[in-house]
C-alpha cells in the first residue's frame, strides 16, 4: 500500500500538496458549464499551531478510531489496500470522526455553491493507482515523503506513535486564567 512519511517541521507552506491533491488521482481538471476549471477540495490541510506548522493528513491507521466512531457506516477499512476510505454518500456530516482523529485528518466540507446543504467528510483517498501519493511527489521540501519499503513503513509506524505522543503532550499549553 501507499505510505506517507510526514515531517511538518520541513513544511514551508507552499501549498503544492493541496493543489496536487485537488487534481485527484486522475490528474484531470474538470470544467463547469462556463468552461471555468473547477477543482475538488484538497484532502489534506496545513495550519500553524503555536508558531509550528502542522500538516493534517490521514495516516491510514491500523486500528482507525474514526471508523469506530462513524455512526453512519460511511468510514471503512479497505482490507485489500489497508486504507481508510469513505462512502461520501453515506456521510451525514455529524462531526463524530472529526472529534476522534488526533491527526486532524478529517474535515467536514460544505459545498461552496450551496453552503446551506449538509457537509460531508473529506479525507485522504490514498491516490488509488499511483505508486506514491501525489502530495508527496509534488512536495519540494521533503515535509511529505513516500515510505518506499517495508522497513521504512515500520519506521513510519514508530514515528506515528512518537508523533502521537508529541501531539498528545505539550502542544496544548495551559495558558489559562483561574476560574474563568
Amino acid at each position: 500500500m501507499l505510505s506517507l512519511r510526514e515531517e511538518s517541521i520541513k513544511c514551508d507552506g507552499c501549498g503544492r500538496c493541496q493543489l496536487a491533491c485537488s487534481l485527484g488521482p486522475a490528474l484531470r481538471v474538470p470544467v463547469n458549464d462556463q468552461g471555468i476549471p473547477k477543482l475538488r477540495p484538497p484532502l489534506l490541510w496545513f495550519d500553524e499551531i503555536e508558531g509550528r506548522r502542522q500538516i493534517f493528513v490521514c495516516r491510514h491507521c491500523e486500528n482507525p478510531i474514526c471508523v469506530d466512531a462513524c455512526v453512519a457506516g460511511a468510514l471503512w477499512v479497505d482490507s485489500k489496500s489497508g486504507m481508510v476510505r469513505v462512502h461520501q454518500n453515506r456521510c451525514i456530516g455529524c462531526y463524530s470522526c472529526v472529534m476522534e482523529c488526533p491527526f486532524g485528518a478529517l474535515r467536514i466540507v460544505y459545498p461552496v455553491e450551496e453552503p446551506s446543504t449538509n457537509g460531508v467528510v473529506h479525507k485522504c483517498d490514498g491516490c488509488i493507482g499511483w505508486q506514491a501519493p501525489l502530495c508527496a511527489i509534488f512536495c519540494p521540501t521533503g515535509a511529505l515523503q513516500t515510505a518506499k519499503n517495508a522497513a521504512e513503513r515500520a519506521s513510519k509506524r514508530r514515528r506515528e506513535r512518537a508523533m502521537f505522543v508529541s501531539l498528545t503532550t505539550g502542544t496544548v499549553s495551559c495558558a489559562a486564567k483561574k476560574h474563568g
Binding site: 472529534m99 476522534e100 488526533p102 491527526f103 498528545t168 496544548v172
Partner: peptide
C-alpha cells in the same frame, strides 16, 4: 486538560481528545 467545549471551529477536537487521554 480534562475537558473541552468547541463550537463552529471544531477542527482541534481530535487533538484535544488525545491530550485529555494522555
Amino acid at each position: 486538560l480534562v475537558g473541552a467545549v468547541l463550537t463552529n471551529r471544531v477542527e482541534p477536537a481530535g487533538r484535544l481528545q488525545a491530550s485529555i487521554r494522555s
